[in-house]
Write a protein that binds this DNA or RNA. Structure first.
Length: 647
DNA sequence: GGCGCAGGAGTTTTT
DNA sequence: CTCCTGCGCC
């Protein structure tokens, strides 16, 4: 193991934090202050003191930051094995569920559902509960509410009363849907993302497992602590109960995920929950110029509930950020595209330019303008590789090979059969739930019992495909790539051409997919990794050249990233802060944090765009500038008006 | 009951 | 742009 030079590599603030004595520590790390660095060096420090590497639990929110941290640790320590327990909350949860699940009555082959699977299941359940009320919430909202309840450890009743009073009258129906959802997941041996945390938490109720895990994870390091939800905080508190070795790094000013349960209070009340905690502040910013940080510092000052800190730049003053007004959002798009195109003409790197916005639909017009000027750009939103329909079709077959009770996978494949829609699917699923072997049951399905003769042929053919696929898998000699090709040749290829758009393209995709899987044969590991991966593409492209494209991103997705130049679109009242946040004080504060995140993404050049009107619902509606501009102080910007600039 | 089409609406989204 | 809903036809 290399010896690490903490004094040389870290500034004084970072050193104090990384070399903190035993006991709970809270590290308040401002934007661009070396948060990841401190976390990595903390792990290195523990290892250098002789802590065994399997005693360290390092938790992150995204797969990407887990990988970044492992890589940095490798650079630091040289030829050292990676930390075995470093990963996302959900990934660690899944591993622990696999290890201990049977001891608390869970099945062994479990499949993870993604959001689409969840939505399909909820939709089917809404139909079985049979409400005809047109005000009844759509499946996506029901899912959000149920998920929020899990992550906040709240009962539905309390959550509805608190945040969704207008839906309170549906409490009985929603509770019934939640109950059926739970049962169907259990019968299907499926776990959704929230279950990965919930069951982990439940494992800790077991009088044998709790001390075992408390002993295993002697040092707990958590990234982005400000985004933990009550469930995650409770989980961490429980694990750290005895030894109190909790090292939490985060920035309360960047807590922007309350809509999915994140609770800044976890961070704000840390010192109360851990009275002997040491608090460290990282306030030196290595990223942005003074005049950019001035705006961030100034605006965030308006928040009532926060841990005070001031970012100090090591860079020089820099040029004044710009505030540009436009007649309309269309003008805004043209202007931004034009400025980017001028940058391109000057030979600037397009990858150093980013366009940020509060909501995705605000990026529409800029997409059109950039495309017109042939400026290459990437969107951070959009479909991920493994979420594309044809990939999910193939995954559904593979999932059924591993777990023949997976009703989400069945539902997907059944609905691809002509004339089989939601109703028939539901009937078949309910019937299959009563059978010992669902696949065999499908093969031997007789007309009349469950289905009309017309449908039987298609359904038994699916059963036979699955059964033949299972035989190929059980023989144990075939790679996953082989299975994918077999799925195609057994009849999926025909379905692909029958029901999906641009089938040729998709077929080529699947050939490439199969090729990638030629040297893999562990189905369970593969499926869980794909379900817990942010983007299959990303991992496949790991280490390849970063393409030089303008980045279009929502502010949420830009967290943790940085660019030389940042354009922030539509900085208007009602849009940013969004209309929906205006009612609650705590929501306004979150919008302000979001503004803080947006501004601190820029290294040198920051341009805030303020249209005076926008084309919504057919006509132009007037728009006022955002309050955040006033809060920052007008003297902190250079002001321009597009019409003057244009003439 | 399935399916295709037209029209309207729209926070933010890891795992 | 994409998702959802309602409608009419088979």
């Amino acid at each position: 193991m290399n010896s690490v030079d903490f004094e040389h590599d870290l500034n004084e603030e970072q050193q104090k934090a990384a070399l903190a004595p035993d006991g709970p520590s809270l590290i308040l790390a401002g934007a661009g202050s070396g948060k990841t660095r401190v976390l990595t060096y903390r792990a290195a420090y523990l290892l250098s003191k002789g802590v065994p590497f399997h005693r360290i639990l390092l938790l992150t929110f995204t797969k990407k930051s887990a990988i970044v941290m492992q890589n940095r640790l490798k650079d630091l320590l040289g030829d050292h094995p990676p930390l075995p327990w470093a990963g996302t909350f959900h990934h660690v949860g899944f591993r622990l569920i696999r290890e201990f699940g049977q001891r608390v009555g869970l099945a062994s082959a479990l499949t993870i559902m993604d959001r689409e699977d969840q939505l399909d299941m909820i939709k089917a359940l809404v139909d079985t509960v049979g409400t005809k009320d047109s005000d009844f919430p759509p499946a996506s909202l029901i899912l959000n509410i149920m998920s929020l309840a899990s992550n906040k450890l709240m009962a539905l009743e309390e959550l509805l009363g608190d945040r969704y009073p207008h839906l309170f009258r549906y409490l009985p129906e929603l509770e019934e849907i939640a109950r059926r959802y739970l049962v169907r997941k259990q019968d299907s041996r499926l776990l959704d993302y929230d279950d990965l945390l919930l069951y982990w938490y439940r494992l800790l109720d077991d009088p044998e497992i709790l001390p075992l895990l408390q002993g295993r994870f002697r040092f707990i390091l958590v990234d982005e602590y400000q985004d933990t939800n009550p469930l995650q905080a409770a989980l961490l508190d429980r694990l750290a109960q005895g030894h109190q070795q909790l090292f939490a790094v985060g920035d309360d000013s960047q807590s922007i995920y309350s809509f999915r349960g994140a609770n800044v209070e976890n961070m704000l009340s840390f010192s109360e929950r851990y009275p002997n905690a040491e608090v460290f502040r990282l306030e030196t910013n290595y990223r942005s110029t003074v005049s950019i940080l001035d705006i961030a510092n100034r605006v965030i000052l308006q928040n009532q509930r926060q841990l005070p800190k001031v970012l100090r730049s090591v860079l020089d003053q820099g040029s004044l950020p710009e505030c540009i007004t436009f007649y309309s959002d269309i003008d805004q798009a043209q202007y931004v595209a034009k400025r980017i195109s001028q940058k391109e003409d000057r030979g600037e790197m397009m990858g150093e330019v980013c366009v940020l916005y509060r909501s995705h639909y605000l990026s529409l017009s800029i997409q059109i303008e950039l495309a017109r000027r042939r400026i290459p750009f990437t969107l951070t939103s959009g479909l991920r590789f493994y979420e594309q329909a044809h990939i999910k079709d193939i995954l559904a077959y593979l999932r059924l090979v591993l777990n023949p009770r997976d009703s989400s996978a069945f539902s997907r494949l059944l609905r691809m059969i002509p004339k089989v829609g939601p109703k028939a699917t539901e009937k078949i699923l309910q019937w299959m739930a009563t059978c010992d072997d669902p696949v065999e049951a499908l093969c031997s399905l007789q007309a009349g019992k469950v289905l009309t003769p017309k449908l039987v042929a298609g359904v038994t053919s699916l059963g036979e495909r699955l059964s033949s696929l299972r035989r190929s898998y059980i023989s144990g000699t075939n790679s996953l790539g082989f299975l994918v090709r077999e799925i195609l040749s057994l009849g999926y290829k025909k379905e692909l051409y029958d029901i999906r758009e641009n089938p040729q393209e998709r077929e080529e995709d699947l050939e490439a997919f199969a090729k990638q899987l030629d040297n893999q044969s562990d189905l369970e590991t593969f499926l869980s990794e794909i379900a817990l991966l942010e983007s299959f593409e990303e991992s496949a492209l790991e280490g390849s050249v970063v393409s030089d494209r303008v980045v279009l991103s929502s502010i949420h997705q830009a967290k943790g990233l940085e660019w030389d130049t940042v354009f922030l679109l539509s900085v208007n009242e009602g849009l940013f802060p969004s209309e929906k946040s205006l009612e609650r004080m705590s929501d306004i504060e979150e919008e302000r944090r979001l503004f803080y995140v947006a501004v601190t993404r820029a290294r040198k050049e920051l341009v805030l765009c303020v249209p005076k009107s926008a084309q919504g619902r057919g006509r132009y509606a007037p728009l006022a500038p955002s309050r955040f501009l006033l809060e920052a102080g007008s003297e902190r910007f250079s002001h321009e008006d597009y019409e003057h600039w244009y003439s």
